[in-house]
Design a protein around this nucleic acid. Structure first.
Lengths: 199, 199, 199, 199
DNA sequence: TATGAATGAGTGTTCATTCAT
DNA sequence: TATGAATGAACACTCATTCAT
């Protein structure tokens, strides 16, 4: 019992330290493209040594994956939260997606990266697909509520793509503040919701 | 006269060899992210030495830029061609855009890259903006023809983003052939055209 | 306390390893012009990998600078030592300078290089100037003691130049051993001291 | 006869073209260290192709050597000219040497380079030594005229070294114009002549 | 003889990863 | 478990030299 408890504590402690590294990485990703962040930088930011990072992640790519999956998990939770009192409407869903991406640009960049050819491990693919499926079915529900009858799955895909496209097209519009970008992308999200609202 | 002709021939020959390098790069870009393609790989693919690459491009980034500008030019020509007999309709425009991106994925990746923060030289920015403006005004015209009255510019942006999003979301869907991807993305493009068609 | 001691030990160890690299560089500089020594050569000579060099010096130029500054420091110490019991006489000063250059040819080469236009960092310039000023004022004192009354500063410069000239002219006289070169240059140094001794 | 004449003409033409290259090199050497001048730069400056340079010189080093020997020849001529009406006095000799080096910095740099370890071919060494011997005997004569009796050869070496030293020490004094440098080095040369004038 | 494109070994530098302490 | 020095393959880029035209 005591031994189990000890091991449990150790586990918690380990997770806490892992989170330390994870957060350090996230802070850096907020400033520069995740592909150009080095192990040394992460170690420095986290206040640990390079070797320590390798105690928690076998490769740098795994750390990236963890960042990615953490965000995916967060998104899933957000979606669940949003739909716990019945299916959300289209506009709310679109705004949620855009807001989430705005606050988790790294997630978005990684998604793009992995989608555009960066190889993703099995675990990563599975976790990503899970989140995707959840998002898709929520979108489908919302579309259905909005009156869509045919091609639900395809239309959901289209809506999802459209929202992603807004981000890639405007997420780093030069000369605009983050807030301005948020405003602009939300406005576009509303337009998307609008055009999909009257089938 | 003869001398001019000779120099002209040399120019042509030089361009042909430059194209050799360009094509080698494109072949590699089809397989992996352009950011991770090395000079050595391009040289090997082109069947020339590393030094030769630098006879045609002062830096690797310039080569990338050439690939990008070549595609931008091609897209512009395609758009001009398409609109020479009056404004194209929404569906045709969407299909053109998606088709073009399918055949020029690297262009799409580079556009994303540059849009997401990769620095682009003055020439590149100018050329890109030119193409963008042309595309946008074509979209606006088509939207107008389709009955859109307000928020034309914003709606055009949204449509454009939606199409891009389709590509980023499905361009490399694992386990599908290029043809399948083309079919799928065109189908989604049609849906986009549809939802934007009845304001 | 223990922690401080440990860190101190680490510091010492680090310095020892840095010296390993430094000495390897010096051995190579004895054989060939420092400008043509490569990182790979230094690494090989030191028995370490290329990367290790960069653990101790951010750039190759910094390593060169370290070699240079170490010698400058050594020279300054020698000069201080020599003058602690009153101003040294002209002959002793000349012999010291020539002896030092004989034993630190790389210092001499670097001094020449930097003087002839190789850019030197701020630290380097400052350290060099310090040593120069010290040497100059010692020479001035010695000249004064020797009976020189006017143009002290200019004459000191001339004497200094003359000694340097001896080195550049004979330091690598082909077909002579280092010892023979030392003898010859010291003989010339004595002549210099002589002609400057009877104003 | 005619054939010989033709060949002679060709020879002259060839020499003229070679001089074209040589002069181009000299112009570049005036601006930057000769070690960092590339074949391409010389070719461009001379208005010929890279290949052409290799028609005249088997390697770049040979071109450097030619530049060096040309200067050495010029110096020898100057010395002969100066001594044709009897042995020149010490001050004139010193001023000549310094003036020549000021106007032929590249010669000086190359001399330093070769003396400090840059390997010099047999031809180069021989030609250099010839000039040296001539200079030395002129210096010896001047010293003798000035009343020096013993150690003539050694004293000549010393004087020669001293003059060289002046150049290395002040030839590129930062922040001074060429004219200022000329003035300063001539002043030091006078001091050298002075101290060697009263044995 | 002149050309200049092609060559490829070589340069300084970076950085994910390993491993002795 | 934490450390951080060591590693060395890899990178973009340079340039003296060659050689087919």
């Amino acid at each position: 019992m005591v031994k189990q408890s000890l091991e449990h504590l150790k586990e918690i402690e380990r997770d806490a330290r892992r989170k330390l590294v994870l957060d350090a990485a996230l802070e850096l990703f907020a400033v520069k493209d995740f592909r150009s962040v080095t192990v040394r930088e992460i170690a420095k930011q986290a206040g640990v040594s390079v070797g320590t990072i390798y105690n928690y992640y076998p490769t740098l790519m795994e750390l990236f994956l963890d960042v990615f999956l953490t965000s995916a998990e967060k998104m899933k939770n957000g979606l669940h939260e949003m739909s716990k009192d019945g299916p959300p409407d289209l506009k709310a869903l679109c705004r949620f997606h855009i807001s989430f991406l705005n606050e988790n640009m790294t997630f978005y960049q990684m998604m793009s990266h992995f989608m555009l050819g960066g190889e993703l491990s099995g675990v990563g693919t599975e976790k990503l697909n899970q989140t995707m499926r959840l998002l898709m079915s929520l979108i489908e529900n919302a579309l259905q509520t909005a009156g869509h009858k045919k091609n639900l799955r395809l239309t959901a895909h289209t809506l999802f793509s459209a929202l992603n496209g807004i981000m890639i097209s405007y997420a780093r519009y030069p000369g605009r503040t983050n807030e301005e970008i948020r405003q602009h992308t939300l406005r576009l999200a509303d337009i998307v919701a609008d055009v999909f609202d009257n089938p």
